[in-house]
Design a protein around this nucleic acid. Structure first.
Lengths: 229, 229
DNA sequence: ATCGCGCCTTGACCTGGATCAAGCCGCGTG
DNA sequence: CACGCGGCTTGATCCAGGTCAAGGCGCGAT
């Protein structure tokens, strides 16, 4: 995957529908940013630098409690974007972002991007859609945390990540990041995986991936029911 | 407050910046809808009828768990809007809405509204801002639920609702709605209020309102600390 | 090789808040 | 007026999941 900003933009789902002059304008303003594994991309409460588009690597976007507890809002893979909303609305970054792997991003600086939005109605409509998707995602997270227990959340996650033919799920490199994404401790995640495995609903392949043996059981758990395998 | 759709729109914060022909177009498409106290406005998973603007009354937007547990995403007062996102993006309503009081809304039907967005760049930019605000609100809720305990959430709520000179807070008509907004049971809410009151941080006026006696204490609680009054 | 350090797992315990239950009050209705 | 019902408070328990602690294992550095 080439590192140049235009090809990063081209490969992102977000800007899929943007073509011609609109696209060129964005490509022109884009800057390439590189982050080493573990590097902070921005911290909560800073002025938002702009819209980030991930070209390669992996980024987690998370909030921190005063106690030090963290909750990840989003894991951003190549092709994904983050900080769009703050960039558009011009408020401070409401969360932290950090590279989990060596990561290359394209950055569309906030002022130029805002101006492009002002000028370009098509782009504006595009963005609308993607913001709506983000809202949907957030409502999903809320629903998970407020209304589902640990097992239900994990079940829903596994179902959403399963890759069809074999129902294989690739887990994030560190389980503790998955745990905090589900608002769990890694201990609880570990125990819950084990229980699912004991129940025969899943089977761990290596520690990067597992296979779903019973979709039905997971679906019941996700619905808050109590499946007997 | 008059019930006619245009005046409802005019009074809403959401459409504040929309003027002239753009406004007239919206005003023209708007329909007035009335809901009795307790009536369902829509249920999760229905086709989204459009954007609702509250003229008078009170609406709660909430999700339901299979167990019957509810979590309210938003309490919408006069001047507020709901279902914007689903209307814009054209997906199903992701939550339920219900009138808590006799309520009058203006409804901008989804198809006409989407068309207006297509045609009207100004309107589009407007909406962008308000969606961003909604995202911010959701992130706040998530942060609350994932990162704060019962006392912290209540403290933050009280601070956000306090009306300045006297730091008076008007509570929603039913405490149980506040409870579910904070993802608590009404029992826990009751106990927490009592503890705050015992600590001298608040003083209940009648059971519709209370006064904040110590902002400092609430701020510490909201930060997850342990204030000794 | 050996050490040290993260990460994961497992066990034992603790606790915040849910659940269950009882009693009180205010209000609308027959 | 008596009655019932819904909302609020308070008390007594329960439990999911967090915290603390102890090993095990893989891996990079010495």
């Amino acid at each position: 995957m080439p590192d140049a900003a235009p090809s990063i933009l081209r490969a992102s789902r977000f800007f899929l529908g943007v073509k011609g002059a609109s696209f060129d304008r964005l490509a022109h303003m884009a800057q390439v940013r590189r982050f080493a594994r573990g590097a902070a991309i921005f911290r909560e409460g800073q002025e938002c630098p702009g819209v980030f588009v991930v070209g390669s690597g992996l980024v987690r976007v998370f909030k921190t409690a005063p106690s030090g507890r963290e909750h990840v809002l989003h894991l951003v893979a190549p092709g994904g974007t983050f900080a769009e909303v703050a960039a558009i609305a011009g408020f401070e970054t409401p969360a932290n972002a950090e590279a989990l792997e060596d990561t290359v991003c394209a950055l569309l600086p906030a002022p130029a991007f805002a101006q492009a939005l002002q000028d370009d109605h098509q782009l504006c409509l595009q963005l609308m859609g993607s913001m709506a998707a983000w809202v949907k995602h957030l409502v999903g997270l809320l629903e998970d945390i407020a209304l589902r227990d640990a097992t239900g959340r994990l079940a829903r996650y596994l179902l959403s990540e399963a890759i069809e033919p074999q129902d294989v799920v690739r887990l994030p490199s560190l389980k503790k990041h998955l745990a905090s994404h589900l608002n769990l401790t890694s201990e609880t995640l570990s125990r819950t995986l084990r229980r699912m495995s004991d129940a025969g609903a899943i089977e761990s392949r290596d520690d990067q991936s597992l296979v779903i043996k019973s979709r039905a059981a997971l679906e019941q758990w996700a619905r808050g029911e109590f499946p007997q395998i």
